Amino acid sequence: MKKFRIILAVVLMIVINAQLSKAQKVDSLMYKAYLLSSQSLWESALDQNENDWSLEKAIAYYGILNNTMVSSNEEKFDEFVDPALEYLESLEEQGIHKAEAMALRSSIYGFIMAYSPWKGMYYGPKSSSAIESALEKNSDSPIVNMISGTSLFYTPETFGGDKEAAVEAFEKAIALYEKANYQGWLYINTLASLGQAYQSIGQKDKAIETFEKALTVEPNFKWVSSQLLPQAQASK
């Protein structure tokens, strides 16, 4: 019996290590896809998330759709938006990573409105409701706070947008990512967003400091080094 338990423990350790290794590989692939704005790498990251009900797969869908916003590739957006929403809704129904799934769904509704502003009357309330529910479910999730900040930053003030509140949400997301020792693509993306939010409320020194911090974490962050930081420095 003792020998069997030892063998079982070894097998479990091998399985767990293999799963962790695969998760790290996918996270690394998403990081590279983000830095290079590569649609093909994003799709490869999604393909490698074979397990259902994983947060990583939900994030890969979000990354793909976010990348289409950068490249203005509406055809690719249309290809992936419905499968992404269906997957997130399935996560919510299963009660797995529910807060994060609701937050990501809220963000995707925002993407839909960005491509088709005339859909705002329908998707605006749905997006607001989803992020509010996500915050109620787990206000200590970095992903939820990141997306809450994005929503507050880009939503017109007339409809509930608040750039100072966005700064607070981004700051909380950064603190939570750092507490978890996470420096993946969502972290550096949030640093870029926080810098933009600082700049929008006139805190130019903090904006520059945040952009410089992002480049300390990732020196090859071209969006920050070639665009955001120079713009912030020129505005002083």
Rank of each mutant, 00 (worst) to 15 (best):
residue 57 K to V: 15
residue 57 K to C: 13
residue 57 K to I: 12
residue 58 A to I: 12
residue 58 A to R: 12
residue 58 A to Q: 10
residue 59 I to S: 04
residue 61 Y to K: 13
residue 61 Y to E: 08
residue 62 Y to Q: 12
residue 62 Y to G: 09
residue 63 G to D: 13
residue 63 G to P: 12
residue 63 G to E: 11
residue 64 I to R: 07
residue 65 L to R: 08
residue 66 N to M: 08
residue 66 N to P: 04
residue 66 N to D: 06
residue 66 N to V: 00
residue 66 N to I: 01
residue 67 N to E: 06
residue 67 N to T: 06
residue 68 T to N: 09
residue 68 T to G: 12
residue 70 V to Q: 11
residue 71 S to L: 09
residue 71 S to W: 04
residue 71 S to V: 07
residue 72 S to N: 11
residue 72 S to C: 13
residue 72 S to G: 05
residue 72 S to L: 10
residue 72 S to A: 05
residue 73 N to C: 08
residue 74 E to S: 05
residue 74 E to C: 03
residue 75 E to L: 11
residue 76 K to M: 08
residue 77 F to R: 01
residue 78 D to M: 14
residue 78 D to G: 14
residue 80 F to W: 11
residue 80 F to R: 10
residue 80 F to P: 05
residue 80 F to T: 08
residue 81 V to Y: 12
residue 82 D to S: 15
residue 83 P to I: 11
residue 83 P to G: 12
residue 84 A to M: 07
residue 85 L to F: 12
residue 86 E to F: 07
residue 86 E to D: 11
residue 86 E to L: 13
residue 86 E to I: 07
residue 87 Y to D: 15
residue 87 Y to R: 15
residue 88 L to Q: 09
residue 89 E to R: 10
residue 90 S to L: 13
residue 91 L to T: 13
residue 91 L to C: 15
residue 92 E to T: 12
residue 93 E to S: 14
residue 94 Q to V: 09
residue 94 Q to E: 15
residue 96 I to Q: 04
residue 96 I to F: 03
residue 97 H to R: 09
residue 97 H to M: 04
residue 97 H to K: 05
residue 97 H to S: 12
residue 98 K to G: 07
residue 98 K to Q: 04
residue 98 K to I: 14
residue 99 A to Q: 11
residue 101 A to Y: 03
residue 101 A to T: 10
residue 102 M to A: 09
residue 102 M to K: 13
residue 103 A to P: 03
residue 103 A to E: 03
residue 104 L to W: 02
residue 105 R to F: 04
residue 106 S to H: 00
residue 107 S to M: 08
residue 108 I to Y: 01
residue 108 I to F: 07
residue 109 Y to Q: 02
residue 109 Y to V: 01
residue 109 Y to I: 00
residue 110 G to S: 01
residue 110 G to K: 01
residue 111 F to E: 06
residue 111 F to L: 02
residue 112 I to M: 14
residue 112 I to K: 13
residue 112 I to L: 02
residue 115 Y to V: 02
residue 115 Y to T: 03
residue 115 Y to H: 04
residue 116 S to Y: 15
residue 117 P to Q: 03
residue 117 P to W: 03
residue 118 W to E: 15
residue 118 W to R: 15
residue 119 K to V: 04
residue 120 G to N: 06
residue 120 G to D: 03
residue 121 M to D: 07
residue 121 M to R: 04
residue 121 M to S: 02
residue 122 Y to A: 09
residue 122 Y to M: 12
residue 122 Y to Q: 14
residue 122 Y to G: 09
residue 123 Y to V: 01
residue 123 Y to D: 07
residue 124 G to C: 02
residue 124 G to Y: 00
residue 124 G to N: 03
residue 124 G to L: 01
residue 125 P to L: 02
residue 125 P to F: 02
residue 125 P to Y: 05
residue 125 P to H: 01
residue 126 K to V: 01
residue 126 K to R: 07
residue 126 K to E: 13
residue 127 S to P: 00
residue 127 S to I: 00
residue 127 S to F: 02
residue 128 S to F: 05
residue 128 S to G: 09
